[in-house]
Design a protein around this nucleic acid. Structure first.
Length: 350
DNA sequence: ATCATTTGACCCAC
DNA sequence: GTGGGTCAAATGAT
């Protein structure tokens, strides 16, 4: 077994331990929500178990290359994108590729932006996106923007998203994510990175000016105005990803319109800190504690087991990097990170 | 010079 | 045939 795999396994184990710690903090009370906590935490543990067993399986198969790399190298894998990707059709018939592309899991978030708060466009979700297309959609007042991960070529990350401004409520952006990030994002540490957001704002504002003028302003202010509703819409086939609903306990409202942070924001910050895999000593702590200011109340969970091969492939390598939180529910108010989290453990940041 | 966006064209699914 | 998703050359921004 190669060093990368051993390291990966070690980190997965660490994640497992962290999940256990989380379970300890979310000690079950009589409320059903806590039962849900317990259930979700158990799912996390089982996910890690799966990942570990898969790694062992890979090792037993005599493969020495890291799984993700192998995945991305595979000419027929989903990682090579659509039918007109760089890969020749010798090994992959276009139809097959399309089939596989179709199996990419997707989920939709509705990001609401309130005018007057300085947020006139969809908040950056923390990932680096590159726009590769825009389409006027039939029956839609606003064009749909197509974005893919900036690291598609460098790291083979196949994550894409579509940004569609709502017709009924122009302050709502429907963001459909497809595929999980397999890249090691670097720019996401800057939550307010305007790399794509400004563009999204600009493009939508252009239409907005045509259709329904609105105040301008693109400064990124996380404090107010952003409302996120995450839906699990697509996924008739093989959605393996959860949907999250962020509530704002400070407001006391059950309405998800009070949500503040997007799933990916949470994912990027919390999980980047939670999963030691991509953590850096210089940034981990600040990111980690920045979350303590988030009012995260609950995540609505919707998990489906996959029956397609490709989804299994996707879920395995990404579970430890991109979606380790996908299956559990937590309330930061209730989690005492300081007690058990090994910040001062040098191995943690290895 | 490099990188990101725009936009018309292409391809596939329906 | 049409609509949606993607590509890639042209263009723009830094």
């Amino acid at each position: 077994m190669e060093w990368e795999q051993m390291k990966l396994i070690g980190e997965l184990k660490q994640g497992k331990e962290l999940a256990k710690q989380l379970r300890n903090h979310l000690h079950p009370s009589s409320s059903s929500s806590h039962q849900m906590h317990e259930f979700l935490v158990e799912k996390i543990l089982s996910t890690y178990e799966k990942a570990l067993s898969m790694l062992n399986w890979e090792a037993n198969m005599g493969e020495s290359k890291p799984i993700v790399s192998r995945l991305l190298d595979s000419p027929c894998s989903f990682a090579n994108g659509g039918p007109r990707s760089e890969v020749s059709d010798q090994d992959c018939k276009p139809k097959d590729v399309y089939k596989k592309r179709k199996t990419l899991p997707s989920w939709t978030e509705q990001v609401k932006v309130c005018s007057g708060t300085g947020l006139e466009g969809p908040l950056d979700d923390g990932y680096c996106w590159r726009k590769y297309g825009q389409k006027d959609i039939l029956g839609a007042n606003f064009p749909r923007g197509y974005y893919r991960c900036t690291h598609r070529h460098t790291q083979g990350c196949q994550a894409t998203k579509q940004v569609q401004r709502s017709d009924t409520d122009p302050t709502i952006f429907e963001i459909t994510y497809k595929g999980r990030h397999t890249c090691t994002q670097v720019c996401h540490l800057n939550m307010a990175s305007p790399s794509t957001t400004k563009k999204e704002v600009k493009e939508t504002q252009n239409h907005e000016q045509q259709n329904q003028p609105q105040a301008k302003g693109t400064s990124m202010n996380f404090g107010a105005g952003l409302k996120v509703k995450t839906e699990d819409l697509d996924s008739k086939e093989d959605n393996i990803f959860p949907s999250f609903f962020f509530g704002s306990p400070s407001t006391g409202s059950e309405n998800e319109d009070n949500n503040i942070f997007t799933e990916t924001m949470m994912e990027n910050n919390f999980m980047e800190s939670f999963s030691p895999t991509f953590i850096s000593p210089a940034t981990s702590e600040s990111n980690f504690f920045s979350l303590s200011h988030c009012h995260v109340n609950s995540f609505a969970l919707n998990v489906q087991t996959s029956d397609s091969d490709i989804t299994e492939i996707i879920s395995a390598p990404t579970s430890a990097t991109n979606s380790p939180m996908g299956d559990f529910d937590f309330s930061l108010d209730k989690v005492d990170f300081d007690m058990n989290f090994p910040f001062d453990n040098p191995e943690f940041f290895s």
